[in-house]
Design a protein around this nucleic acid. Structure first.
Lengths: 242, 242
DNA sequence: AATTTGATGACAGTTTTGTGACACATCAGG
DNA sequence: CCTGATGTGTCACAAAACTGTCATCAAATT
């Protein structure tokens, strides 16, 4: 998933500088030198964040920010203002217009990307960290812990330690229990849909997961659906022969 | 740990009075006499709480409060409004704007600090100065002391000395025990979201913290969650061997 | 029996953490 | 203005843990 940042800056030199730094830190910059151009670009692609120079030809950055905020489609896009230090003294604040942060020129590349990431981080909602319990297993994303109950009495439990991938795998399966997922679906959902990994790798992780669950006799919860994929099921998985 | 309170008040006399009282009760006041000044200050340092006079030159306190609430970065900062008794009828709109509490002038110093502490306690446990005890460790933010108990009997204890950063780190982790935090989250919450530091620096501070805790056999309380971050946990992390 | 599909152990390359060292502050108090 | 004590952030390298792939074996299906 590439994060696009719309850079609105009239000075080509600074535009290049910013563009270069964004690319270096894995972001995708798209550049505009004025508000009109930026407006057109926003119509094409909705960026994840806008880096906006305070001083622009024709329409001020402030005005452009207001315009973004006024429009429903662009309302939630985070804005970071670029201002010269002298302009900072200006009584009117960019924050007033709804900017999420501002950076004073000159700034270090590190500061730039750090602020961008900070703002994006605040926007992105936390991954669901609800506790999920099923089949005598309890997974808690917030504490990153898995407990296995010996019996239904819930009195005795053992903590289970999993590697990152197995943890995510179990979490996903438990969050969608009783449902079968193909290897490809699991790769898409857990590894991300851009990775290029063998389907069979999923087998190996399922194996690793089961191996750990064996220790607490819970490996039967992760079931193979031949010809399709895998499933987490707490329902009595007694498959009748014949 | 120093708790900073941004005081927005135009009358110098009252500003001084408040400032004096806050200092006396261990808080760190930063003062602004109008909304513009306050905005600039907030961009530099994120305060833990805002004490806001209702009546301000240019922009009203109410408007300023709204501005804070509108911005993601400042959204969660608790606001306490200062209002004259006559203005009390406006209390409704003050709370509407997102104030967490309000105090009517004239107020006693005791009332002031009591309300501040109450609001802080409600909001974020880690910046209150209550004693936290867990896993045989007792941390007292007020006296800036850490005691380690040798066993459950609580009879013998050793005092532990930590540097400022390690102290805050331990305090934060203990205030949110059992919960995992990524390095970035820790940087945001402990160092502040306006610092630009390498993620890995957290490792080093964790290391320093552990080194000190080793001396009293408490280093196992600070745990690594591979692929995620760190966690303070007093629960016996029983790893079933084989 | 042949074929397809899943299980499993091994392994080599990567990624993530742990750790010591170091260069810079900052700050008393000479 | 120095000077040592302390604290901080970075770095480089070591250690540990994890990952993806394969080859091979086992089981189910035809």
């Amino acid at each position: 998933m590439s994060i696009t940042v719309l850079v609105v800056e009239d000075e080509p030199a600074i535009q290049d500088l910013i563009s270069f730094n964004l690319k270096k830190s894995g972001l995708t910059p798209i550049c505009a030198s004025n508000a009109e151009q930026a407006t057109v670009m926003i119509n094409n692609v909705l960026p994840d964040l806008v880096l906006l120079d305070w001083m622009l030809p024709n329409m001020s950055g402030l005005e452009f920010a207001r315009q973004l905020r006024r429009n429903t489609r662009t309302q939630v896009i985070p804005i970071i203002m670029l201002t010269a230090r002298i302009e900072l003294e200006d009584k009117v604040s960019g924050l007033e217009a709804g900017a999420d942060d501002y950076i004073t020129k000159p700034f270090s590349p590190r500061e730039l990307t750090a602020r961008i990431k900070a703002v994006l981080r605040r926007r992105i909602p936390e991954i669901s960290d609800e506790v999920i319990e099923a089949g005598g297993l309890k997974i808690d994303p917030a504490t990153h812990r898995i407990l296995a109950y010996a019996d239904d009495s819930c009195s005795k439990y053992t903590e289970i330690k999993l590697g990152p991938t197995e943890f995510r795998l179990l979490h996903f399966l438990m969050a969608h229990k009783e449902r079968v997922y193909t290897r490809t679906q699991l790769l898409d959902r857990i590894w991300g849909d851009h990775v290029f990994i063998e389907d069979r790798t999923v087998d190996v992780h399922i194996r690793r997961l089961r191996k750990v669950l064996e220790k607490v006799q819970k490996d039967n919860l992760v079931q193979t659906v031949r010809g399709t994929g895998y499933r987490f099921s707490s329902e009595s998985a007694v498959h009748s022969e014949e």
